[in-house]
Design a protein around this nucleic acid. Structure first.
Length: 361
DNA sequence: ACGGTCAGTCGTGTTCCGTC
DNA sequence: GACGGAACACGACTGACCGT
């Protein structure tokens, strides 16, 4: 049932949008007016969907038919939930409530949702354990590699990481970690730059005791683990918010956490608008190199907190409800969008009543 | 004795295929 | 099309072995 024919005591006669315009009847046009203010769709979802369509076309050209179909179908259906307050006011900003995501590694829509999810999870964990530990940001890099040796280089990175976390000094100083693999591409020579971004948890007294590992020692340990003395860079820094006086240090770290949680591979690195052949080549290289890789992992106290918080896997888990679900005690206006001709079009809307009152379409 | 390395084991993820 | 099982591959973890 469409919204205009509803007879709900919550919305039937005095529904207002949040700009305080009183409506006597709740009709399809009202939904349109309200939802056109939702710039999230046009500015965030639409560009990602357009990019994932280009990825699907590339998969088709390469011959990955199943992947092409999955990615092409990704995000073709979105449902946003707008809270309806007791006084009838409808929240202008909707929450993503339902969608069909393909969960492909290179799909820009799913990568974007995944990065949100990892950001939310890492932030949650840091908040949970933040009173017991302080945090370090570590970036481990290796020399750029040729496309044909990307897979081998990533394998070596993984092996070297295992070696590193096995070192006694690491085990003594680092109480837990979050590790994310990122691969960037150098456009001038086509080489790849795989590297790890890590958040490390250390004791509050880290730096005052012998377990402290300085920059040169980190570099030495990483050279040793990767078995390459030509490595010149390791970036290690204490995680500090911009406002050092802030009470909630974890919130202050959000921009740095967002950087770490960002996409494993940026879509602009493999979707080349003007060059289909190059796009196909890079998509194929990245697919082969990232096949079956665990792109993120948790260890020590991060892993314990991950399990305690009952968080789900960022790769395979729910990409819709990132850090909140709809409050079942409230009424929600559900607005459904479908992907058609390069844009999202509203296809339907209905009220989801508080639990026990039944939905109406 | 201590620390580092590596092989083995276990758990988990991915894909394929058969069944309903 | 959805679901479940089998096979395989990978990552995490552990313990034995080896060098200092």
């Amino acid at each position: 049932m469409l919204a205009h024919s509803l007879a709900s005591p919550l919305v039937s006669s005095d529904v207002r949008t949040s700009d305080d315009t009183t409506k006597k009847d709740f009709c399809q046009d009202d939904v349109l007016v309200m939802c056109t203010t939702n710039t999230e769709l046009t500015q965030k979802f639409t560009p990602k969907k357009l990019t994932s369509e280009m990825l699907a076309q590339s998969y088709t050209r390469i011959g990955y038919q199943n992947k092409a179909l999955r990615v092409a179908d990704c995000g073709t259906f979105l449902e946003f939930a707008h809270e309806i307050q007791v006084d009838g006011v409808i929240a202008e900003k909707g929450k993503l409530h339902n969608a069909n995501f393909c969960k492909d590694r290179l799909c820009s829509m799913c990568s974007w949702r995944r990065s949100y999810k990892i950001f939310a999870q890492v932030s949650q964990i840091m908040e949970q354990i933040g009173s017991d530990y302080k945090f370090l940001f570590l970036t481990l890099t290796v020399p750029n590699c040729a496309p044909e040796s990307l897979s081998e280089t990533i394998s070596r990175l993984m092996l070297s990481w295992n070696r590193l976390i096995d070192y006694k000094r690491f085990k003594k100083a680092i109480k837990g970690f979050f590790r994310a693999l990122e691969v960037t591409r150098n456009f001038s020579n086509g080489s790849y730059h795989p590297h790890f971004h890590c958040v490390l948890a250390v004791s509050k007294s880290y730096g005052k005791h012998s377990d402290y590992i300085n920059h040169d020692e980190w570099l030495e340990m990483w050279r040793k683990a990767y078995q390459d003395s030509s490595i010149t860079q390791v970036d290690i820094r204490v995680a500090k918010g911009k406002n050092k006086e802030a009470e909630n240090a974890v919130q202050e770290l959000s921009s740095a956490v967002a950087e770490i949680a960002k996409y494993a591979v940026k879509s602009s690195d493999y979707i080349i608008d003007s060059d289909e052949a190059l796009t196909d080549k890079i998509v194929q290289e990245l697919n082969e190199a990232l096949f079956k890789r665990r792109l993120t992992s948790y260890g020590g106290c991060f892993k314990e907190a991950f399990e305690k918080l009952k968080l789900d896997d960022a790769e395979e888990g729910d990409l819709v409800h990132i850090n909140e679900t709809l409050n079942p005690a409230l009424a929600w206006l559900i607005v459904r969008y479908g992907w058609s001709c390069g844009a999202y079009q509203m296809t339907d809307s209905f009220i989801k009543y508080p639990d026990g009152k039944g939905d109406s379409e």
